[in-house]
């Protein structure tokens, strides 16, 4: 999209650029302007505007959809940091609406009920950048091939349990490490095994890194969880239910921000982990049956 004076908007570089700006930060789920202010005050680098946090979506059941534009606009007006919002997998009209509202990033999210069981959104068709969830490297690369400018682990949202996010980050970064050691012939096999475009697999082998930033999401409830995600290779973290489902959101939010920045400094982690009150209760994975596992949505 280039204008006559040589100025371009919505390029991959500009879209991936915002993902670069969010690195080392914490993106917090908020359901109203008041929570958005608390998040910004605590040092969030962006907020995710949604009607219900994943823990409540999980509890309520039913179909979860894009949030009411009025609520998203209320949050946009309340803060100066970027505002993200979620659309259902494959629901490109919800994405068109969010772009018209001027949100800064769209999350094509498994936390909402999928609208298309075969196709994800063609994300190249939008000026606004997209983030998508992934459980492994093949899924992450398929999303990049559709135009995603940021990947996040899916984890298991709304559980306060980090185990799935750890599994997904280890899957993704473990395979990236193996690909950087592979020879050219092995790369063809990697592309087949991962069901991912060969060009992107070759790009990883050449550059030694994933084409877009990889953030961690799904189950972060404590400063230690955030630092774990960062030490495993995550470049920033999303915290959903973990903040506003805890006893005392503001100090916990601030502590998670500090832990994400100083993720290798155990002294800082010990200091900020003190006296935060109870985290969200959380759910063990064997308490969730297959149909309620969000991470299995999308492919």
């Amino acid at each position: 999209m280039t204008s006559t004076n040589g100025t371009s908007v919505g390029t991959q570089r500009v879209k991936r650029g915002l993902a670069e700006m969010l690195k080392g930060g914490v993106i917090m789920d908020v359901v109203n302007a008041e929570q958005a202010k608390i998040a910004e005050d605590a040092g969030a680098c962006a907020v995710m505007a949604l009607e219900r946090v994943p823990a409540d979506i999980r509890r309520d059941g039913g179909v979860a959809r894009m949030s009411d534009p009025e609520m998203i606009e209320g949050i946009k007006a309340a803060v100066t940091i970027p505002v993200m919002a979620k659309v259902r997998i494959g629901h490109f009209v919800e994405a068109q609406i969010l772009e018209a509202l001027g949100v800064d990033f769209i999350d094509e999210s498994e936390v909402l009920t999928p609208a298309d069981e075969t196709h994800h959104i063609d994300k190249f068709g939008f000026t606004v950048p997209f983030v998508c969830g992934a459980t492994n490297l093949g899924e992450a690369l398929r999303r990049v091939s559709e135009g995603a400018c940021m990947i996040r682990s899916k984890g298991e949202a709304g559980t306060g349990n980090i185990v799935e996010a750890v599994r997904h980050l280890r899957n993704i970064f473990g395979d990236i490490r193996k690909i950087t050691q592979a020879d050219n012939a092995e790369l063809f096999q990697w592309a087949k095994t991962l069901q991912a475009p060969l060009g992107l697999v070759q790009e990883i082998a050449e550059t030694g890194k994933f084409p877009v930033p990889i953030f961690c999401a799904g189950g972060i409830a404590t400063p230690a969880d955030a630092a774990l995600a960062m030490q495993l290779g995550g470049e920033a973290v999303f915290v959903g239910s973990g903040i506003f489902k805890s006893d005392d959101p503001a100090p916990r939010a601030k502590a998670i921000v500090e832990a994400t920045t100083h993720f290798r400094d155990a002294n800082v982690l010990a200091r900020v982990s003190r006296g935060l009150g109870a985290p969200m209760t959380g759910i063990a994975m064997d308490e969730i049956n297959g149909t309620q596992r969000f991470a299995e949505r999308g492919w």
């Binding site: 040589g6 908007v9 650029g17 915002l18 970027p82 800064d104 990033f105």
Partner: peptide, 27 residues
């Protein structure tokens, strides 16, 4: 954020005494 939100983020040429630069402007 005076150049606008992310949908207004852009790339354009910048003029300097030591040549043109490719400017990437994000919010």
């Amino acid at each position: 954020n005076a150049f606008g939100r992310q949908i207004d983020s852009f790339e354009s040429s910048i003029h300097t005494p030591f040549g043109d630069f490719h400017g990437v402007f994000i919010r």
